[in-house]
Nucleic acid binder design. Structure first.
Lengths: 147, 147
DNA sequence: TTATAATTTTGTAATCATTATAAATTTATT
DNA sequence: AATAAATTTATAATGATTACAAAATTATAA
């Protein structure tokens, strides 16, 4: 993972390729999502960016996320409906939510599995697999599972 | 589909079996969800029930849904994070959301497919497969797809 | 570079779904 | 029928998101 992946030039170019004007707020939001793969909420991103960008507004974070989503650079994720999270990992993959510790883990989907997940006659553009249960740490009874 | 499926006695019994006190509001909400398989929101249920139950409060619909969910009689579903919907169909199945007409279609999951959707070492209790794209009606270019 | 137009950001107010609360009602138990 | 426990109601509070207009930024063209 080269640092150039997070350079302004690289992010700038990715946005232009996606047909998105590379504004300052959008670059910061996208870089944050590239670095933090823990599916943060808009508010989490806002609070994390705030110290370095005192002039950043909450509305800009929401606007930036909406623009990035429209352009396919990030995707939304919600396991419960009560928290809208974002993910810069846009290829098909699954999400496992541990009902004990609350952590959300990504997991890969075999392309063949993914392709099977579509009813006949329908045209799939994007998919997500959500699984709830216990993560390995929490599955051992009684063990407390940090994170 | 026998009418007895929606009888108060049948719903009453299902709730007792699930360890839930069968109150009037819960029975009405569950019956509505049994009859309407279009994944309604809490507000939609409230508005639909209101004419026949003028004393029903919004809070009771929310409370009833939370109790029914806790007992495993209904499950929540959200495709976008902006609408929390409910479903009385609790077995594993997939949801296809048409990006053109907005309709949400259920589709079956082969048990073997479903079982495969879990990372190693994790213990799955419940899963959902979300797919976005075009439904058959909307897939034919230019055709307008009602509902 | 400067001027102009288009888009984005900011700060604040408004909206809307959901949750909290306490009193009244209903349901279960004795 | 009396008592206790849980649920419902009505309303207020919360909190995330959206709407809005003015200020700032970005792109385009002279």
């Amino acid at each position: 993972m080269k640092t150039s992946e997070y350079s302004n030039e690289q992010l700038d170019q990715r946005m232009r390729n996606a047909g998105l004007r590379p504004s300052s707020a959008r670059i910061h939001v996208l870089r944050y999502l590239e670095k933090h793969r823990n599916h943060p909420t808009a508010d989490r991103i806002y609070k994390a960016l705030r110290p370095d960008l005192p002039s950043l507004s909450r509305a800009s974070v929401y606007n930036s996320l909406a623009a990035l989503e429209r352009s396919g650079l990030v995707r939304p994720l919600t396991m419960d409906g009560d928290e809208l999270r974002y993910d810069a990992h846009v290829e098909d993959h699954g999400h496992f939510c541990c009902e004990r510790c609350g952590a959300i883990h990504d997991f890969p989907l075999a392309p063949s599995d993914a392709a099977a997940l579509c009813p006949d006659g329908f045209l799939a553009r994007r998919r997500d697999v959500l699984v709830w249960g216990l993560c390995p740490g929490c599955a051992e009874d009684g063990a407390d599972c940090a994170k």
